[in-house]
Amino acid sequence: MGFKLLSKLLVYLTASIMAIASPLAFSVDSSGEYPTVSEIPVGEVRLYQIADGVWSHIATQSFDGAVYPSNGLIVRDGDELLLIDTAWGAKNTAALLAEIEKQIGLPVTRAVSTHFHDDRVGGVDVLRAAGVATYASPSTRRLAEVEGNEIPTHSLEGLSSSGDAVRFGPVELFYPGAAHSTDNLIVYVPSASVLYGGCAIYELSRTSAGNVADADLAEWPTSIERIQQHYPEAQFVIPGHGLPGGLDLLKHTTNVVKAHTNRSVVE
Results as ranks from 00 to 15, higher is better:
residue 2 G to M: 14
residue 4 K to C: 06
residue 4 K to W: 09
residue 7 S to H: 11
residue 8 K to Q: 06
residue 9 L to P: 10
residue 9 L to I: 06
residue 11 V to N: 11
residue 16 S to C: 11
residue 17 I to T: 05
residue 20 I to L: 10
residue 22 S to D: 06
residue 22 S to F: 15
residue 22 S to M: 08
residue 24 L to E: 12
residue 25 A to L: 08
residue 30 S to N: 11
residue 30 S to L: 12
residue 33 E to Y: 06
residue 33 E to R: 12
residue 36 T to K: 12
residue 36 T to Q: 10
residue 37 V to Y: 12
residue 40 I to G: 12
residue 40 I to H: 07
residue 40 I to T: 10
residue 41 P to H: 14
residue 47 L to W: 01
residue 47 L to Y: 00
residue 49 Q to F: 10
residue 52 D to A: 08
residue 55 W to H: 04
residue 55 W to F: 13
residue 57 H to G: 02
residue 59 A to E: 11
residue 60 T to S: 10
residue 61 Q to S: 14
residue 61 Q to D: 05
residue 62 S to A: 12
residue 63 F to Q: 07
residue 64 D to L: 11
residue 69 P to Q: 15
residue 70 S to E: 03
residue 72 G to V: 01
residue 73 L to W: 01
residue 73 L to P: 03
residue 75 V to Q: 03
residue 75 V to K: 01
residue 77 D to G: 12
residue 79 D to L: 15
residue 81 L to P: 03
residue 83 L to I: 15
residue 83 L to W: 01
residue 84 I to G: 01
residue 86 T to G: 02
residue 86 T to L: 01
residue 88 W to V: 00
residue 94 A to P: 03
residue 95 A to S: 10
residue 97 L to H: 02
residue 97 L to Y: 04
residue 97 L to W: 04
residue 100 I to S: 07
residue 103 Q to G: 13
residue 103 Q to Y: 10
residue 105 G to K: 15
residue 106 L to N: 15
residue 109 T to A: 12
residue 111 A to L: 14
residue 113 S to Y: 04
residue 114 T to L: 00
residue 115 H to D: 00
residue 117 H to E: 00
residue 119 D to A: 03
residue 119 D to I: 01
residue 120 R to D: 14
residue 121 V to K: 01
residue 123 G to H: 03
residue 124 V to P: 03
residue 131 G to T: 14
residue 132 V to W: 03
residue 133 A to F: 12
residue 135 Y to L: 04
residue 136 A to W: 03
residue 137 S to I: 07
residue 138 P to K: 13
residue 139 S to V: 08
residue 140 T to M: 02
residue 142 R to C: 12
residue 145 E to Q: 09
residue 145 E to W: 10
residue 145 E to V: 10
residue 149 N to V: 13
residue 151 I to F: 15
residue 151 I to Y: 04
residue 152 P to W: 02
residue 152 P to L: 04
residue 152 P to D: 01
residue 154 H to V: 14
residue 155 S to G: 13
residue 157 E to T: 11
residue 158 G to K: 11
residue 158 G to H: 15
residue 160 S to E: 11
residue 160 S to A: 14
residue 161 S to D: 14
residue 162 S to D: 12
residue 167 R to Y: 07
residue 168 F to G: 02
residue 172 E to Y: 06
residue 174 F to S: 04
residue 177 G to W: 01
residue 178 A to D: 08
residue 179 A to Q: 00
residue 185 L to I: 11
residue 185 L to M: 09
residue 186 I to H: 04
residue 188 Y to K: 01
residue 190 P to E: 06
residue 190 P to C: 03
residue 195 L to V: 10
residue 195 L to S: 00
residue 195 L to E: 00
residue 196 Y to L: 06
residue 197 G to E: 01
residue 199 C to T: 02
residue 200 A to G: 05
residue 204 L to Y: 14
residue 206 R to K: 09
residue 209 A to E: 07
residue 209 A to Y: 12
residue 212 V to Y: 05
residue 213 A to N: 12
residue 213 A to S: 13
residue 217 L to S: 12
residue 225 E to S: 06
residue 226 R to W: 05
residue 227 I to F: 03
residue 228 Q to K: 15
residue 230 H to F: 15
residue 231 Y to F: 15
residue 232 P to D: 12
residue 232 P to L: 07
residue 233 E to R: 14
residue 233 E to M: 10
residue 233 E to H: 11
residue 234 A to G: 08
residue 237 V to K: 00
residue 238 I to N: 02
residue 239 P to Q: 01
residue 241 H to S: 01
residue 242 G to Y: 02
residue 244 P to G: 06
residue 247 L to V: 08
residue 247 L to F: 05
residue 248 D to L: 07
residue 248 D to Y: 12
residue 252 H to P: 01
residue 253 T to N: 01
residue 253 T to S: 13
residue 255 N to A: 14
residue 258 K to G: 09
residue 259 A to M: 11
residue 260 H to Y: 07
residue 265 V to W: 09
residue 266 V to C: 02
residue 266 V to H: 11
